[in-house]
């Protein structure tokens, strides 16, 4: 494990902590996309099936369990918590799951490194993660008054992806025969999706203004 990978994982962990904290402290999930959270839950479930079949390291196992548990906690709060669920922007969070899930599934069936259930589901999770942030970005665009913490959450998630790219470059340069084209391409697509958000996030931070995304 290199420093970029560790920093990426920690940023990912921090992003989820920020989101848990925001929802729990303000008792509000305003501006948070349930669709994105549910897509992430699907991503984690499909990718971490190897929790049952393949032990990699204690670090790996613990992180996987944290990502699964925290995402399901957020979904539970947004759907069922009697105070929090009322604050969910149901009418604004209208992105359709099938537009993301179906193309990713078809792509995973066609483009994978081995045609087995585990491998296809794993590949599906890689493709789906790349686009799972889209409902959240659309919702942010529709939210007039973006909460600082919600903005920070998306910024941290994007930073995690950028750090993963540095991790791949490092691994490519230091590990012989290290190649994973499907993961790289998906990861680059995923990071590109954040560029527009980054631009407005940094601009608002520099000008000391509240973050807002133009429609």
């Amino acid at each position: 494990m290199n420093i970029f990978r560790l920093a990426g994982d920690m940023t990912h962990l921090l992003s989820i902590l920020v989101l848990l904290l925001k929802i729990n402290a303000t008792r509000s999930c305003r501006g948070v996309s349930l669709k994105t959270q549910e897509l992430y839950a699907l991503v984690f479930v499909c990718r971490y099936l190897d929790l049952f079949t393949n032990f990699i390291s204690m670090y790996n196992t613990i992180m996987k369990i944290i990502f699964l548990a925290s995402t399901f906690t957020i979904i539970y709060w947004m759907r069922f918590h009697k105070v929090i669920r009322v604050t969910y922007d149901r009418e604004q969070d209208t992105f359709r799951y099938q537009f993301l899930v179906l193309p990713c599934l078809v792509l995973a069936l066609l483009l994978n490194s081995e045609f087995t259930v585990m491998e296809v589901l794993w590949t599906f999770s890689i493709y789906l993660e790349a686009v799972a942030i889209l409902p959240q970005l659309v919702l942010l665009q529709r939210t007039n008054n973006i909460d600082n913490l919600t903005g920070n959450y998306v910024f941290l998630l994007g930073s995690y992806r950028a750090l993963y790219i540095l991790n791949w470059i490092y691994r490519f340069l230091t590990e012989p025969n290290y190649r994973q084209y499907l993961v790289w391409i998906s990861g680059i697509v995923q990071t590109i999706i954040y560029i527009d958000f980054f631009y407005y996030y940094i601009k608002s931070w520099k000008n000391n203004e509240k973050l807002s995304l133009p429609a």
Binding site: I56, M63, Y178
Partner: peptide
Amino acid sequence: ESVAEEKDEL
């Protein structure tokens, strides 16, 4: 080979 190796990433 690399299939197993890439699975160590989260």
